[in-house]
Simulated assay, not measured.
Amino acid sequence: MKYQTELKDNILYIRLEGDLIAGADTQQMIDSVDDMQEGNVLLCAVDLSNVRFMDSSGMGVLVSLLTKFRNRGGELVLIKPSDHIRKLLIVTKLNAIFTIAENDDFAAQFLKESTY
Results as ranks from 00 to 15, higher is better:
residue 78 L to R: 00
residue 22 A to S: 13
residue 67 T to H: 11
residue 31 D to L: 05
residue 116 Y to I: 10
residue 68 K to R: 13
residue 38 E to C: 03
residue 29 M to S: 00
residue 3 Y to H: 13
residue 114 S to E: 15
residue 71 N to V: 05
residue 86 R to V: 03
residue 31 D to C: 05
residue 19 D to K: 09
residue 56 S to R: 05
residue 8 K to C: 02
residue 91 V to S: 04
residue 59 M to N: 01
residue 104 D to L: 05
residue 46 V to A: 09
residue 19 D to S: 09
residue 68 K to A: 09
residue 49 S to F: 03
residue 82 S to G: 15
residue 76 L to E: 09
residue 52 R to A: 02
residue 51 V to N: 02
residue 40 N to L: 09
residue 9 D to T: 11
residue 86 R to E: 14
residue 95 N to M: 02
residue 104 D to R: 12
residue 44 C to A: 06
residue 19 D to H: 14
residue 9 D to W: 06
residue 84 H to K: 08
residue 38 E to F: 10
residue 14 I to M: 07
residue 6 E to A: 06
residue 62 L to M: 09
residue 31 D to A: 15
residue 37 Q to I: 03
residue 19 D to P: 12
residue 8 K to G: 12
residue 65 L to N: 00
residue 69 F to Q: 07
residue 66 L to H: 15
residue 93 K to L: 11
residue 65 L to Q: 11
residue 58 G to R: 00
residue 108 A to H: 08
residue 33 V to E: 10
residue 102 E to I: 07
residue 30 I to V: 11
residue 43 L to R: 09
residue 54 M to D: 02
residue 84 H to V: 08
residue 94 L to I: 05
residue 16 L to A: 11
residue 18 G to C: 13
residue 71 N to S: 11
residue 32 S to T: 05
residue 68 K to P: 10
residue 10 N to E: 15
residue 49 S to N: 10
residue 71 N to G: 04
residue 48 L to Q: 06
residue 45 A to Q: 04
residue 100 I to V: 14
residue 74 G to M: 01
residue 91 V to H: 10
residue 16 L to E: 05
